[in-house]
C-alpha cells in the first residue's frame, strides 16, 4: 500500500536518478509510459506549517508554469499526474540529450550550432511574450528530443509569471552567465540567441534595455532605501 508519508518507496521499479536541494528525481512508470517523478521533500529545519505551505506552493507553481509554457507553444514534458499529498509531479520522460552535453561534445558544425541557438532564442521569446519567466535558464535545462530534434524546456521549479522587462532581462542574464561559465570555448553563443530573440519577440526593446542594465550591475538589484 502507498502511504502518505513515503509514497515513492513502495512504488515498484522506481530508480533514483538525482537529488537537489529541494527535490529528488526518480525514474518510473505511469500508466505504462516512462515517467520522471519529481518529489519535493520536507525540510526538517523549517517550521512544519511554513514548510508545508512552501512545498505545496512551489509544487503548484511548477505545474502551472509548465502548462502555461505549453499553452504558448513551447515544448515541456507532459504532466501526467500531480500527487499533492506526496508533493510529487509525474512527467513524461523526454528521450534525448541536454544541450549542455551536445555543446560539450562539440560535434555540431557552425551551421547546426547557429540553428540550435536560433531555436533557443525563439522559444525564450515565446515564453517571455507569454508572460512567463523560466528563472533557471541553463544549458542543462534544455533538451533536444531524439526522435524529432525538437527543443524541450525542463525544470520549471523556479519559474513564475511576470511581464516585467526587468525579470526577463535577468532571465537572459542567467543564461548568458551559463554560457560564459560552461561553454566559453564555443564562441559567442549568446549573440546568436539574442539575434533570434530580437527577431521573434515583440517586446524586445524594453527587455534588451533592462538586459543591458542587468549586465552592468549583476542579477541582484541594489536595494537602497
Amino acid at each position: 500500500m502507498v502511504t502518505v508519508e513515503e509514497p515513492i518507496v513502495s512504488t515498484s521499479g522506481c530508480t533514483l536518478i538525482g537529488q537537489g536541494a529541494e527535490a529528488r528525481v526518480w525514474e518510473g512508470m505511469y500508466l505504462g509510459q516512462a515517467s520522471i517523478l519529481k518529489q519535493r521533500f520536507s525540510k526538517k529545519y523549517r517550521h512544519s506549517t511554513l514548510d508545508a505551505k512552501l512545498t505545496v506552493g512551489r509544487l503548484k507553481q511548477e505545474v502551472r508554469s509548465m502548462l502555461r509554457a505549453r499553452k504558448v507553444g513551447v515544448l515541456t514534458p507532459v504532466v501526467q499526474h500531480v500527487d499533492h499529498e506526496a508533493s510529487t509531479i509525474y512527467m513524461q520522460k523526454v528521450i534525448g540529450r541536454s544541450i549542455k552535453d551536445v555543446l560539450h561534445e562539440g560535434s555540431l558544425e557552425a551551421e547546426g550550432l547557429k540553428l540550435l541557438m536560433a531555436e533557443v532564442g525563439r522559444i525564450l521569446a515565446k515564453i517571455h511574450d507569454g508572460g512567463l519567466v523560466h528563472g533557471d535558464l541553463t544549458t542543462s535545462n534544455m533538451m533536444i528530443r531524439t526522435h524529432d530534434g525538437a527543443l524541450v524546456l525542463i525544470d520549471f521549479g523556479l519559474s513564475y509569471n511576470s511581464s516585467v522587462p526587468e525579470d526577463k532581462g535577468v532571465d537572459l542574464y542567467v543564461l548568458e552567465r551559463a554560457f560564459t561559465s560552461a561553454h566559453s570555448t564555443q564562441g559567442n553563443l549568446m549573440d546568436m540567441v539574442l539575434e533570434s530573440y530580437r527577431h521573434h519577440s515583440s517586446q524586445w526593446s524594453a527587455t534588451f534595455n533592462k538586459f543591458a542594465e542587468v549586465r552592468m550591475r549583476g542579477r541582484k538589484r541594489a536595494m537602497l532605501g
Binding site: R70, V78, V79
Partner: peptide, 20 residues
C-alpha cells in the same frame, strides 16, 4: 498547443494540473 503535442497530451496536462 496542438502544434507541439497531441490532443491527448494537452488533456492529460489539464487533468493533472487541475488542482494546481
Amino acid at each position: 498547443e496542438l502544434k507541439i503535442g497531441s490532443l491527448a497530451d494537452a488533456i492529460l496536462c489539464r487533468i493533472a494540473a487541475r488542482d494546481c
